[in-house]
């Protein structure tokens, strides 16, 4: 089963690398932030698959942090800049 988990993680890693293309040359900032979201979700899946392949259940904790980090960073990146009147 280890080979299957590794092959699945490899496919997901390829998907993430392709998604990075959009992050690098996305025309608007929103596209780049979408790339962050894709990388967060796919990264969680890769971590869980690696945890199954290497028999390391502790990687689920790292996946949990990834989920939190993706949500928080999307929220931080989409925050509006304060204009001088509001600040």
């Amino acid at each position: 089963m280890t080979d299957f988990w590794l092959a699945a993680a490899l496919c997901l890693l390829l998907t993430m690398a392709l998604g990075l293309v959009r992050v690098m040359r996305g025309p608007s900032g929103g596209d780049r932030i979408l790339g962050v979201q894709l990388l967060g979700t796919a990264g969680i899946a890769v971590l869980l698959l690696l945890g199954a392949a290497f028999d390391m259940p502790a990687l689920a904790d790292v996946a949990l942090i990834f989920a939190l980090l993706a949500a928080v960073s999307v929220a931080a990146l989409t925050r509006r800049r304060l204009t001088r009147e509001d600040s």
């Binding site: 990388l39 967060g40 971590l47 990687l59 904790d61």
Partner: peptide, 21 residues
Amino acid sequence: MLFILFGLWLALVWARLGAPD
């Protein structure tokens, strides 16, 4: 933003090296 993504990716590398902490 790229730095944040770099940190995520580096965490994947550490996980691959067998260091979840």
